[in-house]
Simulated scan of single mutants.
Amino acid sequence: MIDIAAQIGATGREVDETGGLIRVRLTRDYDAEVADVWDAITDPERLPRWFLPITGDLRVGGRFQLEGNAGGEILHCEPPALLRVTFGGPTSLVEVRLTVEGARTRFELEHTVPVEFAGSAAGSLFVGPGWDGAVLGLALHLAGEVTDDPVAAANSLEAQRFNLASIEAWVSATTGAAPGDQIEAGRAAALAQYCPDVKD
């Protein structure tokens, strides 16, 4: 069983819209060495254990494809500290930074898209919960929890309840960054996508 409140509380969330760009940021500390976290997010043998299978030319300048999800180009790779890729399109950028925090590793993910791509900062309500699920999957993986099918686990009723709490956390993070009617529309779209079997 997932301790939903603890998992939601373990991740920091920020949303801002500046210079025609929307930035969605997640921050989480893991009880793992930075080399282990880096390996988990870059090793094609480990990624399917907590996220999705990946194929492609996994080097700077190469292209990748996540099974059933987005693909992109690897723009920058600096082990074990920085990974920058396009994600789903050339103007959609994801950057992951790892830093050592004592015996822990701080994981920071920033997803940046042009305003015209997401509509407004309320678009974070669709983007953020997807990354929350990945951050949770990574946490469980690093803690030694094993699942035979991470995709099925991500669609379970328990995961959908986690997603509901995630959406509400993203509503809080987005408040003030977008008009209220756009936030409510984004919330409704996110609920339909991430929580189809859960009533809020």
Rank of each mutant, 00 (worst) to 15 (best):
L140S: 13
R25W: 09
G68H: 00
T42Q: 05
G102R: 06
L191V: 15
D149W: 05
A165T: 07
T105K: 06
V96R: 00
G176M: 08
L191R: 15
P79M: 06
D149Y: 02
T11W: 00
A143E: 14
R25F: 09
A173L: 10
I2P: 01
R49T: 04
E101G: 13
R97P: 00
L83I: 11
T11S: 08
E101M: 14
L98R: 02
V127A: 01
T112W: 00
L83P: 10
G102I: 01
A192V: 09
R59N: 11
D200Q: 15
R59F: 09
E45T: 12
G130E: 05
R28H: 03
A185I: 08
V85K: 01
D31L: 12
N155R: 14
D31F: 06
I74Q: 07
F107P: 06
D39V: 07
A159F: 08
N155G: 12
G186S: 09
P90Q: 15
T147H: 13
A159L: 05
R25L: 14
W38L: 07
A177N: 12
E168I: 08
L66R: 06
E95G: 02
E145N: 12
C77A: 15
L136H: 14
F126T: 11
S166T: 02
A165E: 13
W50A: 01
A103V: 12
T86V: 05
A121I: 04
F107G: 03
A143R: 15
V96Q: 01
